[in-house]
Simulated scan of single mutants.
Amino acid sequence: MLSSAFRMRRGDEFAEAIRRGRRAGRSSLVAHLRVGDQDAPPLVGFVVGKAVGKAVIRNRVKRRLRHLMRARVHLLPRGSLLVVRANPPAASAHSESLAADLDVALERLLRRPRDGRS
């Protein structure tokens, strides 16, 4: 699982990443990345709404996403905030397709210029 040092917990961090960060989406998930200037570890948060499924399904999707991010958190710049929001297709997605969607979204977010132009 993803270490607690990398877990986002505060609502204002979620809001900042979603409102001011860049966004990249796939069918099963959407990722929001806000690159900060501070020298802190990157923080990752997960949003899995009721549209994804009942509590058991939502928790399974969160566990899968946390496991996938554990191997990818080193790719994020220091001080960054990443929110991964699961879409309803994530409930029935295999781990391999969820991992592929996450990799594509992260690759898109990390290759974009940081000067605000898309």
Rank of each mutant, 00 (worst) to 15 (best):
R20K: 14
R20V: 05
R20T: 07
G21K: 09
G21I: 08
R22D: 11
R23A: 13
A24H: 09
G25M: 09
S27A: 15
A31K: 07
A31T: 05
H32W: 13
H32K: 02
L33H: 09
V35C: 09
D39G: 09
D39M: 08
D39L: 12
A40E: 13
L43E: 04
G45A: 00
G45Y: 02
G45W: 03
F46A: 03
V47H: 06
V48G: 02
G49F: 07
K50E: 05
V52E: 00
K54I: 07
A55T: 11
N59H: 10
R60G: 02
V61F: 10
K62V: 04
K62A: 07
L65V: 05
A71Q: 11
A71N: 05
R72W: 06
R72E: 08
R72L: 09
P77D: 12
P77F: 10
L82R: 13
V84G: 01
R85I: 09
R85E: 10
R85Y: 05
N87K: 14
A90N: 01
S92H: 12
S92F: 06
A93H: 02
H94L: 14
H94A: 15
S95L: 13
S97N: 10
S97H: 12
A99I: 07
A99D: 15
D101E: 02
D101R: 01
V104I: 14
A105N: 01
L106W: 03
